[in-house]
């Protein structure tokens, strides 16, 4: 599976054909975020953070409330941090963040989000759910965890992760046109997850639990 070079990434960013265009917006400093020679785009920390509230539940149990779906939004407290302000992530703390950039992948590209090694060496893990499907549109949610021993002060606008892009091919080896238009996160700008299981899985599991 080949990754897109910086040149190929730039071509995709400027593609006239919307169905082929890669959107990573805004790229505040395109020259440094998509450097020649690197096969990735650097993305920045955005303004919205989700702090995990100490849960009122003994555990996060999707089916613990019977037929009432668990509202995952109650687990988080949202915090807006503008440019010039900061948020501190303490050792072993977990919080959600968003990329500053809004992303839309064409149907023949997928991406991986990977933390920048500099942050990694300071103990910051940036993402655990790293795969981004073709057709995704939205702000990327980052799951930040400080595995280090020192608090880290984070500023919106800092480059925090990288996106690597790969072509997606159909069974004939041609560019895929099967975009995930109806995926759960299509067009989402909210970092808080909506559900753990898809409706069919949830229904079946609920039935198994109640039997």
């Amino acid at each position: 599976m080949s990754a897109l070079s910086s040149e190929a990434i730039r071509q995709r960013l400027n593609a006239e054909d919307l169905s082929k265009r890669l959107i990573v917006s805004p790229l505040l400093d395109e020259a440094s975020q998509a450097k020649p020679g690197q096969a990735a785009i650097d993305v920045r920390l955005g303004f919205d953070f989700g702090l995990v509230s100490p849960s009122r539940h003994g555990s996060i149990d999707e089916f613990g409330s019977g037929d009432t779906p668990l509202s995952l939004s109650t687990l988080y407290r949202k915090e807006f941090v503008p440019f010039g302000k900061n948020i501190v992530i303490h050792p072993h703390q977990f919080l959600l963040a968003q990329t500053l950039e809004y992303l839309r992948l064409p149907s023949d590209l997928m991406a991986y989000v990977v933390g920048r090694s500099t942050w990694g060496r300071l103990g910051l893990i940036v993402a655990t759910a790293v795969g981004i499907h073709p057709g995704f549109a939205g702000s990327l949610t980052l799951e930040l965890r400080n595995l280090g021993e020192t608090p880290l002060t984070l500023y919106p606008g800092q480059t925090v992760a990288q996106l690597f892009f790969h072509r997606v091919e159909n069974s004939k080896g041609e560019p895929s046109s099967e975009a995930a238009e109806h995926a759960q996160y299509t067009g989402t700008v909210d970092m808080v997850p909506r559900r753990l299981s898809d409706p069919l899985t949830a229904t079946k599991l609920r039935k198994l639990i109640s039997d």
Binding site: S25, P26, L28, D29, F47, F83, L100, E101, Y102, S139, G157, G187, V189, D190
Partner: peptide
């Protein structure tokens, strides 16, 4: 959805201007 996208546009276009 449209409202959310437009709010995101307002936020990020302003971010570009500030930058």
């Amino acid at each position: 959805k449209l409202h959310e996208l437009l709010l995101k546009a307002v936020e990020l276009s302003e971010a570009r201007m500030i930058w």
